[in-house]
Nucleic acid binder design. Structure first.
Lengths: 192, 192
DNA sequence: GGGATTACCTACATGGTTTAGGCAAATGGC
DNA sequence: GCCATTTGCCTAAACCATGTAGGTAATCCC
């Protein structure tokens, strides 16, 4: 009865790879067991359930992505920082689609609060410190940036931009420039 | 052997309601059969597979949403139209979370091209005609609007905005005002 | 080397998906 | 109003995923 050497961590890492290959929602305990050549039930010694496995993959991806974003931001400011921030997310999603999907898994309050999601929020605020926004504008801006980048990446992944000839990279740059210009204006014209 | 009166259309409509109640990914052929009080296998005379059912629900939701957006846009222009457009999407997502999720189902190329997704793109362009954008800026702007609105709605639904005290409605209005201001400036400052 | 722990096993209950084949109810032509 | 056809729903059964219970073999540690 040769031992393969399973552990929670190895399952999570392999699960993340599997997610990139077949899609996050195709990650099942059974599929992961097949990949290790063991019986499905054997995995239940290391993860509590299918849900537990997915949550762990999500947390892992959030950490990994936060590290990449932190690296990208280091030593930059202004439009440079904004572009590096945005590109870090988009590159990660392109390179690791399954893990990127995993980062959007709905976590319960406590789990989210203990996750690297907090670092993501902090970095977003740090980025905006380069622009001169007072509260509550800063929070609005955090939400807008998150929405644009996340939305763009989702739509791009879903193939929504492949019906026109216009280069997605050009749109991406245009959007970053637009946001930079908008934020540089300081606040936003109050709605009449 | 009383007949319940199943049909593809009735299954799709009931499936959409079910999606709103229990979540789009909890929509199963078995659950839908229970709702009609018939055997699971009976539904396979009307839909080809679980995937087919989900695709049909997605197409249905896209149609329904396109109709609502068209209504919202009628007779408006400028910031008014922009806000109505944005609110139509957000209201739909709030009122019909399952169906909104369904609209994001990945469709194959041909299916997407024949879907109401095309109308959505057209309305987005119509909206932007109120601002003075030449190609390729118009395409960039279409993509930006889609990204912001879709991203905001996704993040809001995922509870990402419930960790700060700032009112989500305030951020939403702020974002619409910002986009309006940005678009009203005509083009965007070229990146230096 | 022996006891405790750990890694993996078999077996099974439960429930979703899908195909095949059948009978009964509705429909429509005469 | 009767028969033929079509259609709606059925049962049965194969397949696969989740999750639990309980067992055995490998490894760890003194």
């Amino acid at each position: 009865m040769a031992r393969v050497g399973l552990s929670t961590q190895r399952l999570v890492v392999a699960g993340a790879e599997l997610a990139d290959e077949v899609g996050f929602d195709q990650v099942t305990v059974a599929a992961l067991a097949r990949r290790f050549g063991v019986q499905t039930a054997s995995l239940y010694s290391h993860v509590k359930s299918s849900q537990d496995l997915k949550t762990r993959i999500a947390l892992h991806a959030l950490e990994e992505l936060a590290d990449l974003v932190a690296d990208a931001l280091a030593g930059r400011s202004g439009r440079d920082a904004l572009a590096a921030f945005a590109d870090a997310y988009r590159d990660y999603a392109a390179r690791h689609p399954g893990r990127y999907d995993a980062t959007r898994l709905r976590l319960d309050h406590a789990t989210a609060a203990a996750s690297a999601g907090v670092r993501h929020a902090q970095m977003s605020r740090a980025l905006l410190r380069g622009y001169d926004l007072a509260e509550p504008d800063q929070t609005h801006a955090v939400r807008m940036l998150g929405s644009v980048f996340h939305g763009y990446i989702s739509l791009e992944a879903a193939g929504s931009f492949s019906h026109t000839a216009v280069d997605p990279q050009a749109s991406w740059t245009w959007i970053i420039d637009s946001l930079d210009a908008l934020l540089r204006q300081g606040a936003v014209p109050r709605h009449a």
